[in-house]
Design a protein around this nucleic acid. Sequence first.
RNA 1: GUGGGCGUAGCUCAGUCGGUAGAGCUCAGGAUUGUGAUUCCUGCGGUCGAGGGUUCGAUCCCCUUCGCCCACCCCA
Length: 427
Amino acid sequence: MAKIQAIRGMNDLLPTESPVWQYFERTVSDLLKAYGYREIRMPIVEQTELFCRSIGEVTDIVEKEMYTFTDRNGDSLSLRPEGTASCVRAADQHGLLFNQTQRLWYAGPMFRHERPQKGRYRQFHQIGAECFGLAGPDIDAELIILTAGLWKKLGIQSDVTLQINTLGLPEERAAFKADLVAYLSKHVDQLDEDSQRRLESNPLRILDSKNETTQQVLNDAPLLEDYLSEETRSHFSSVLDYLKQAGVAYSVNPRLVRGLDYYSKTVFEWVTESLGAQGTVCAGGRYDGLVEQLGGKATPGIGFAMGVERLVLMLKELDVVPAEAIRTVDVFIVAAGEGTQQKAFELASTLREEGGLRVLQNMGGGSFKSQMKKADKSGARVALILGEQELENGEVVIKDLTAEAGQRTLGQEDAVIHLKKLFDNQG
RNA sequence: GUGGGCGUAGCUCAGUCGGUAGAGCUCAGGAUUGUGAUUCCUGCGGUCGAGGGUUCGAUCCCCUUCGCCCACCCCA
């Protein structure tokens, strides 16, 4: 019988990996909460139309990457390819946007049918934050400052850089787009194949092209900057001022356009060199028209999403995950000899209940030696050893496994107190 | 969707100019009758990705297929 394996691009997260994920998720959610963000959880499946209307009918995501199917009622449903649309839908549906500001965050899997490669998967995970009801540049800056703080906390701040740009209002962008298309149409023959195609589908993306001759053509192309209103410009320069004052380094990239249709004004991307081709680790921007576009009352919004796989990959590559963060066992109990296992059960319970410790009790017998090997392998910091002698004397041996430290014999009561204190101080 | 690379033990890989395979790690046990992470010994473990072809004989050569990885496209 052929074994069934996981779907291409959809990965299992094994127990050797999950502690890193948990560390990352904990760090991010703690920080979001510190900024007043509250968690929201949305379904993974939505009406297909939600994504068509928000992300944009002609984007690659909607055109060829969505997992879309017809359910038993004949409705067209899709696995969410990103979180913002669902979040807006949920917030509006439950009246969270009515005359109030709202700071929300979410985490979970997203789905896109792309060819997998390093840092890109068909089921991938994002942690995102969205803020509604604030139109000023201060919240743009706050969000970016928050992310900058996260990199610092994670110890990767010197390996990411901030790219930032403004896309202007939809009408400003439309005027620019028309002129850009007009200009590029005169030079179609000099454009690379992909860009020729994009001239039809998504002309702004041509600005992003990696092709050199295309970039040469772009040197004389109209600039989005020249189409921006005074209001848009001053919004953007305020954002940059706030960042400067907060000590967040950035580089303005006029070619940064972002792939989703709903963005307006500020857009930004945190990128890294240490990941290969998929260097964008966190990206976001303002989307003032989106709520209205989805049928709600006009409400300004801004948000970002980060790719968990990419960030976790980075943390591992840069080796910045604290050892304590990935430890899963505190104490391993070695119980060898007649009648010791029974007592071990008791000690294990006490350590868990009174000490709040993560305790792995040896099961299945085995010699002292083999049990000590298991203790070592478990990653526990301390071995609690209970042999026949100790059992008889009402004692246990406490041995530190992390160093060449010695061991000490303690009364069983004292051992519990000792361990509790040990982990309180350093846990 | 397009290109390139790779599939041999649970993992990382070597190998056979065509005669059905080996190492390290892991795991189990022992040297050390109660002490791990260092050392030494022993053992467990493979339809050599799958199907077909050539051949007396294929893990090796040819064809097909599946899977994984990286890159393009696109994006977190």
